[in-house]
Design a protein around this nucleic acid. Structure first.
Lengths: 233, 233
DNA sequence: GACCGTCTTTGCGCTAGCGCAAATTCTCGC
DNA sequence: GCGAGAATTTGCGCTAGCGCAAAGACGGTC
């Protein structure tokens, strides 16, 4: 698999500190992949065969209930590892990964995980932090879902997205990939109707501006107030 | 710190596969600790100075919101590692650990983590799985909170407790430590009033039996039905 | 054995947000 | 420029479960 440019991953946090020669070795094992919006990278329950690094785009991680309801667990952004189920002791993927926009990713066969972490300890050390951070986030989500009103949860979700993937525009900070009201509903445990109403109200107040599959946060400051305030207008 | 018996931890999953000599080395660094019910092992926000293994009892892991609300993130049972924040890249504990019953634990100074994982790789490998499992659980909680009614969430919480810490009695399976309605409420994101009502209803149906700080599950089978059924009696 | 603090049960009104339904608007392909 | 499908907005009734309040029940203590 020659021809992959080591600079592709040289700057990614998981691989920083490696020499050019080592990067070439790593890339020798990697499979470059391209996904169009809506494409499934892997599905919940599939045999975990590879782990991935996202080079471009955004990935939605979705868990489905037995009853067919979907919940968006998190978004993966550029540079992040994902699909590392096997390294965490799972034989199947516990959630699905779907391209939220045009995506480019690298995939390594799972069998290489032990070898690679042994050879490149920084990869292993970084995985600890990555997973630790995710556990943290998941607990934060649990606490939010337990204690907050829908409006606050939506505010928190938007702030998280803005922080993670925000792109500055003339008007404010725009979420950098197509996202529907339904998506926001699945992130917050609300219905798309309620999310629509909430965004509508905020738009009237000039806090956000909505559009088809688009959200622009005009005033992060006032959005933060909405996230914190337990009741108030 | 001589005098600790290696058999104390010989059978714990995190330390299995080590030889007696290695166990002695490990225990040489360990500090044995005893906590009475309600005692705080460490508090959210504290500088993370140690990591722990629970030898006896049950630990409640609690996160508090800035507004002072509490959410029970998980229960630690015998043999589990906890307080490993530092290993996951945090400098302070992200949650508090409180003894839910009389507890005995071993503590190691955090500074030893790298040394110990390097010397005993099985500890590191096991930590991956432990953390992976917890991430899994946390995601399951998020999905439950997003999609389920209070009654289902309470049922799931009880089933999880029974599985994790159940003790067989003549009548059924009893949760093996003092647990209040308030505790169950903080696990499920409900109010203690609603939890009380739900348990009351189940008691009338002969599914559980309650008591002061006690819950006995008489029919796990029928409880499972409650956990799955979206509406029905 | 009486007291007291903690835990639990129960009643009642109220509201956030869901479920259902329908109208509108946007975007893309032709 | 014109559909047609997808996404969004909006209205309305209804209920699960919260908030508040008060009355038991249990268990440890002096």
């Amino acid at each position: 698999m020659p021809g992959l440019d080591p600079s592709l991953i040289a700057d990614l946090p998981s691989f920083s500190g490696l020499e050019r020669r080592e990067l070439e070795t790593l890339l020798g094992y990697a499979q470059p992949l391209r996904y169009s919006e809506g494409a499934t990278v892997f599905a919940q329950g599939d045999e975990a065969e590879s782990f991935y690094v996202l080079l471009d785009g955004h990935i939605r991680v979705v868990r489905s209930t037995p009853e067919g309801q979907q919940v968006i667990v998190r978004y993966i952004s550029v540079g992040e590892l994902f699909g590392i189920a096997a390294a965490l002791g799972r034989s199947t993927y516990p959630a699905s990964a779907v391209a939220a926009a045009e995506c480019v990713a690298l995939a390594w066969p799972n069998a290489k995980w032990d070898e690679l972490t042994a050879r490149f300890p920084s990869l292993g050390a970084n995985t600890y932090k990555t997973v630790g951070g995710r556990l943290q986030d998941a607990h934060t989500r649990v606490v939010e879902m337990s204690t907050e009103q829908v409006e606050q949860r939506v505010a928190h979700a938007l702030l998280r997205l803005v922080k993670q993937t925000g792109r500055k525009t003339a008007e404010g900070v725009e979420i950098d990939f197509p996202i529907t009201r339904q998506d926001i509903a699945e992130m917050t445990g609300a219905t798309l109707h309620t999310v629509s109403r909430v965004l509508q109200a905020w738009e009237k107040d000039g806090i956000v501006r909505g559009g088809r599959k688009r959200v622009v946060v005009i005033s992060p400051h006032r959005l933060l107030l909405k996230a914190e305030a337990r009741k108030e207008s």
